[in-house]
Design a protein around this nucleic acid. Structure first.
Lengths: 120, 120
DNA sequence: ACATCATATGCCTATATAGGCATGCATTGC
DNA sequence: GCAATGCATGCCTATATAGGCATATGATGT
């Protein structure tokens, strides 16, 4: 099987750096495709394709403004991502540093190998 | 070109649901591959492969404990992700609701087209 | 040294992505 | 209606992923 579709998830959608850049740019307000493409140094088709992905996962919205199509941010879909990742905050904070705990173990292991069944 | 490597980024690494589950499980402490595989209903080789990706992006660490290899969480790499996504918090909060703002514009645009150069 | 248990790798397949390019489609203005 | 502008799509390629399966590699105990 291949990787999950980029459109399956906000997680997958934002895995692509350029899409992240697009989203970042859109914080400044709505923009037409061409402008995004120019500012990010990508081709118009590429921008359109990335925007399509972002639209399919609901991170972006379009509205036609005459000849143009203005893309706007809809960040609500990022909330679950933020929450999921936030669930690990304690672990990089040092507050609940599981890492330290086992870096200790690591050092002890240098001396005598322990079975460490207590950590399972 | 293909998608960026899963190992290129924490963003890419966590795009895969099973890898997210692994990370979540590891919050409970270190675990050997087999156990992870069993608990998540995946094959041992698959677990090993996912763990390899997680290890390559630094989200996970291994330490040999006799015959076993205990995998432990190293969430520090998730911090940048959290921060990036957090940069959008104002936009799903309603605090700085760009979406509302432009729904307003939408209505106004019905009447008179504005050049919007102020928003660039 | 050997059998055993725990993991890592290799190989094969199906899928689809990002990107380049050309072109279709839509809206506007003349 | 027609030309022009703004975007979306289609087509082609290279790449590599997730997963299944078999097997190599590693460490342990006897």
């Amino acid at each position: 099987m291949a990787r999950a579709a980029t459109t399956s998830d906000a997680f997958n959608a934002i895995a692509e750096p350029q899409r992240r850049e697009i989203l970042a740019l859109l914080r400044g307000g709505e923009r037409p495709v061409t402008e995004l493409a120019r500012d990010l140094g990508m081709s118009q088709p590429q921008a359109s394709k990335h925007l399509r992905v972002l639209r399919e996962v609901g991170l972006v919205r379009v509205r036609g403004a005459g000849k143009q199509r203005l893309y706007g941010l809809d960040a609500r879909g990022l909330r679950p991502v933020h929450e999921w990742v936030g669930g690990f905050e304690a672990f990089w904070n040092g507050t609940f540093d599981r890492l330290d705990a086992y870096v200790q173990d690591l050092k002890q292991d240098k001396a005598g190998e322990s079975t460490d069944d207590d950590d399972r």
